[in-house]
Simulated scan of single mutants.
Amino acid sequence: MKSKLKLHGFNNLTKTLSFNIYDICYAESPQDLQAYVEYINQEYDAERLTQILTDVVDIIGANILNIARQDYEPQGASVTILISEQPVTPTDSQIEESPGPLPDTILAHLDKSHITVHTYPEIHPVDGIATFRVDIDVSTCGVISPLKALNYLIHQFDSDIVTVDYRVRGFTRDIEGKKHFIDHEINSIQNYLSEDTKSAYQLTDVNVYQENLFHTKMLLKDFELDNYLFGDATNNLSAEQRAQVTERVKHEMLEIFYARNMPA
């Protein structure tokens, strides 16, 4: 492993992790679709999201300065946490390209950051498809990459599709005055995912190394229709209907994964 970079003053690099998590379901009636949205609003309300982000703060060893949270009508929630600056000396495990810890193995630290989460339940007007999207942004300034929070966050949501973006901006100087536009090695966001996650998803990378831009898309491999049914649909579908719903749900997932409308 390369020796640690010796800096002149504070590390001024800004590292931002943004990712979107999608959960898909099918409900047979408008009433069940609405019940799904209400279930999501209760399961991932502002209080629950605050706890998840607070766990992230614990993982990265920061201090909370302020929490702003809001549940919305008729649906959705948002939480923003401002975290204090806290100079640290990083360990090798905190800066190497590897999965971050889960809550029972808190190792990482952070200089300063903000963390935000927003939820977006959505219902298809015709096809009985409901989609729950979670947008999470973790932005840090200092030695620790927010990618260390990725492993934990993915394990907190039932994710059918995940899109992850990571970028590094600004520059910092070493003790000889030379600019450094990134201070850690990274080949792929995938290297920050645990083995069980990588084996469960189809993974695709689009990276622009010279611009310090990294993008990974994830699509759940195993498809079991019963995991996507909500309400009366769990019991009332015939074999023919199950086949139709399977095709419909898979089509929805592929459109989200490839970010384009596809022919039916």
Rank of each mutant, 00 (worst) to 15 (best):
V88R: 15
V79H: 02
I40Y: 05
I59Y: 02
T80A: 14
T91D: 15
L53H: 06
V37F: 00
N66F: 07
T54M: 09
S93E: 15
I60K: 04
Q86D: 12
E73H: 10
V57M: 02
V57K: 02
E85N: 13
S84N: 13
L33I: 05
V56H: 00
T80S: 15
Q42R: 14
I59W: 00
V57Y: 01
I52V: 15
A68L: 09
T89G: 08
A77Q: 03
Q70G: 02
G61R: 03
P90A: 05
E96P: 04
V57S: 01
A35F: 05
D45F: 03
D45M: 03
V57D: 00
G61S: 02
P90T: 02
V79C: 03
N63Y: 09
R48V: 14
I40H: 03
E38S: 11
Q34M: 12
V79T: 03
D55F: 06
Q70V: 07
N66S: 10
A62E: 03
E47C: 07
L49Q: 06
T89M: 13
I52H: 06
I67Y: 01
E73Y: 09
D92E: 15
V88E: 13
I59K: 00
Y39I: 05
A46Y: 02
I59H: 00
D55W: 06
P74E: 04
A46Q: 10
T54V: 09
A68T: 11
R48D: 06
Q42F: 08
I95K: 01
A46T: 05
E38N: 15
I60C: 08
I67Q: 02
E73V: 10
D55N: 15
P87Q: 06
P87N: 07
L82M: 12
L65D: 08
Q51V: 13
A46L: 01
V37P: 00
L82V: 11
Q34G: 11
Q51L: 14
A62C: 10
Y39C: 09
S93F: 14
E96V: 11
I95W: 01
E73F: 11
I95Y: 01
N41G: 05
A46N: 07
T50W: 02
S78C: 09
A62K: 04
Q51E: 13
S84A: 15
